[in-house]
Design a protein around this nucleic acid. Sequence first.
DNA 1: ACCTGAACACCGTTCAAGT
DNA 2: ACCTGAACACCGTTCAAGT
Lengths: 182, 182
Amino acid sequence: MRADARKNRDHLLAVAGTAITEQGVDVSLRDIARRADVGLATLLRHFPTREALLDALLRTSFDELTAEAAELETSNSPEDALVLWLRDCVAWTTEYRGVTVLMAAAIEDADSALHASCVTLRAAGARLLARAQAVGMARSDMDGDDVFALVAMLAWLGDQPALAPRADRLFEVVASAILART
Amino acid sequence: MRADARKNRDHLLAVAGTAITEQGVDVSLRDIARRADVGLATLLRHFPTREALLDALLRTSFDELTAEAAELETSNSPEDALVLWLRDCVAWTTEYRGVTVLMAAAIEDADSALHASCVTLRAAGARLLARAQAVGMARSDMDGDDVFALVAMLAWLGDQPALAPRADRLFEVVASAILART
DNA sequence: ACCTGAACACCGTTCAAGT
DNA sequence: ACCTGAACACCGTTCAAGT
């Protein structure tokens, strides 16, 4: 990649990060381009879709969450590891208002730029769940897709201003339901 | 209201019902007007916001759900009444893809045309919850806002194609969590 | 290679002009 | 009273033309 292109790309990512933090992931791409002082076509050249932009922006976070899951597997009880990780996943999404809807769409859309990251995340959750199930500390009638869906709906809750105040409490309610033995 | 205006209004509601069933509540208002063979301005004259259109369209359903809650209060055990009603609420929203987000916004926006209906619905749920709590069959640390939020997030799940297959199972998981005694 | 303005087809809002 | 076309300010997509 040419030096000027690299510079544009990095600058666009920085501006996009700010804009998304302020206005959520649905922020106008035109607006991001304007704020970055490049043409809209330039933004779309680097990131052909909103998902591609988000994937570049969130890749670090995705990797951190995956690494954290692996770490918790060795350092905590199966029960604590699962709940702690789920809590961190939900908390993380609150920084990117609206990302949950895109992730829910990406998890089974192989063409989405976010697909791979979502699948990796689901696999990490599935491992933690299986570990808790193995010692009888989590419902045996659940799988990784269920965990992904539960995290998604709790994350969505945090995105809705009117419902967000209940998000933490309802996380506990749902978490207790996962841990209930069958 | 003049006869021609009444006719336009009724026709618009019928067309909007079809369009929303097909494409969800985010369907283009321009498209509805086109399919109804009236100008877009005419649609907006009758229904100044998307919420106003939806309120007119859903008022009957809202009333039915409220009436059903009152009926269940007298005909079923507190526990069954609560769960049956919650299930029907979630099932109802699946007919109007995307309505949950609007309802979540309307519940604390007094200016929304959907506000009154949402408040009424929440009150009905709160009564059923209180009745179950009174006989020790529901968590005592929950209130009407929690129930509203739980229904909303389960309804949202049904709106996401990738997560919808889990919606019924996870409803049971969440329902069991509500019924768990504290 | 990389960038960009401009044209395009959409959206909801608003309002002056018609019947 | 009620309706409507048209102008407006937005959006994301696409591409020919520039450096």
